[in-house]
Design a binder for these strands. Structure first.
Lengths: 249, 249
DNA sequence: CGAACTTTTGACAAGCATCAACACGTGTGG
DNA sequence: CCACACGTGTTGATGCTTGTCAAAAGTTCG
């Protein structure tokens, strides 16, 4: 394992640790995991629906997303992932993938054999517990997305997505609060919000016209956070910020 | 603890065990958990959004559902729970509830102090792991629901819900495959599918007219499973049946 | 037997989808 | 260096799915 690979593992471990303190042995166990780092192109698949999982994958850099395809061929994006996320813990434990995971941008992932992840979770309860918490927060985000596509109108859905991205990126230290690069096309935003690309375009224009955001290429600037959060009916509670450490980075 | 309480705990443990074998000590630890059994009326709350969790709750009998309220007051149902489900594992670990859990029908729940659940998960890795699996399957169902409300049309959404219920009830041994009691009003089905009650009514009529189902009060009979599953774009994969034991009951 | 809830029906409105065309930026190969 | 293809964003016209409102009919339960 090279030093840089070591560094990235440390990084994701810090993320695990945010949720629950790990002992020295726990940390050693994490660092001792056999990993292989892989560079991926935009659009390349990390996991395909119905795959039998061999590896568990930590996103080191770049963005990824999970999605499913329904009967008529329409695609639904289920979540967006930022560096540090364990993108398929479920696969390591459930065995058969129930959705796809694909790179949104170019990036690096660390692959860990599923068996090794299971063993470490089983032998080091604190690590297993950190993974459980990670999974529970994921679940909370899924629930919010059900409410988002189920019960909010188009403008709110888009605003909500923009708010979530802003908060998560800022919490991860990857970006400022009011300005970030959104690596999604409007078609992908449509698939995440259950809308059509055309209508997403109109909603973004509406948010721009009302002075809530401005955009330049794929970078988004939030000009009025309070109103954008109100438009998106957004609250951070479902991201469970109370579990994040206060430590500056 | 009375014998009958013992019996119900055994029951939910068998459910945990379906996903991962437990040793004798593990089982003893589960049976040793301090529980208090409570009878609940239809509509009574088990957990309220933003509550600080004191207890973790196993549904012993009756049905429950999770839901959230969005800005304009609309309600989104996030999942339905059947006897044996651990209805708020997330609360025991995350601390602050991010949604409501409410009884759909009258029923019994077993309350276990959150701290005790955490301790047992931490001290008995096999139990922690069973809980992780439970949580991961929950997550898979949430993802399917995102796709359901996000990308399927009204008729498919309703058909999908009916299919999921049939399969889960049958797997739990609570009901036959083709006929079950659906304890939800059409308004609740609407809140689960992101539709209005009026439109749910029309979709159910459409499914009846086409000979896929028939209803009598709140009991549903599936007259043509293949077509209903096709209409609902339903596949059991997301319920991860591969994790269920084959043991007859 | 009556009150409260749920299901059903109809007329109408609206939000979002669909389709098609155009504009714009980027990269690529001739 | 230009021409061109390609992906993405934008616009407009039109239509369908679903929502809204209101009232009637059926059901449940005290």
């Amino acid at each position: 394992m090279t030093d840089s690979q070591d560094a990235v593992l440390w990084n994701s471990m810090r993320k695990l640790e945010k949720r629950f303190p790990l002992s020295t042995e726990d940390k050693a166990a994490v660092l001792g995991l056999p990993i292989s780092v892989k560079n991926l192109e935009p659009g390349s698949y990390i996991v395909r629906d119905a795959d039998i999982a061999q590896n568990c994958c930590v996103l080191l850099s770049g963005f990824a997303y999970r999605h499913k395809t329904v009967g008529d061929g329409a695609r639904q994006i289920l979540s967006i992932h930022i560096p540090g996320d364990m993108v398929d813990l479920h696969n390591a434990f459930l065995g058969i993938a129930d959705h796809n995971v694909q790179m949104l941008t170019a990036g690096q992932v660390a692959l860990i054999p599923a068996k090794a992840v299971q063993d470490v979770a089983y032998s080091y309860p604190a690590i297993g517990r950190a993974m459980l918490l990670e999974t529970l927060v994921d679940g909370s985000i899924f629930r919010e997305w059900i409410a988002n596509v189920g019960r909010r109108d188009a403008r709110s859905r888009v605003a909500h997505l923009l708010c979530e991205f802003a908060v998560r990126l800022q919490a991860s230290g990857k970006s400022e609060a009011r300005n970030y690069r959104l690596p999604m096309s409007q078609e992908q935003i449509a698939d995440a919000t259950g809308l059509t690309p055309v209508h997403v375009n109109r909603m973004i224009q509406s948010l721009r016209r009302d002075g809530l955001i401005s955009t330049d290429k794929r970078s988004v600037t939030i000009d009025n956070w309070a109103e954008l959060a109100a438009a998106g009916d957004f609250s951070t509670a479902y991201l469970h910020p109370e579990l994040a450490e206060g430590e500056p980075r």
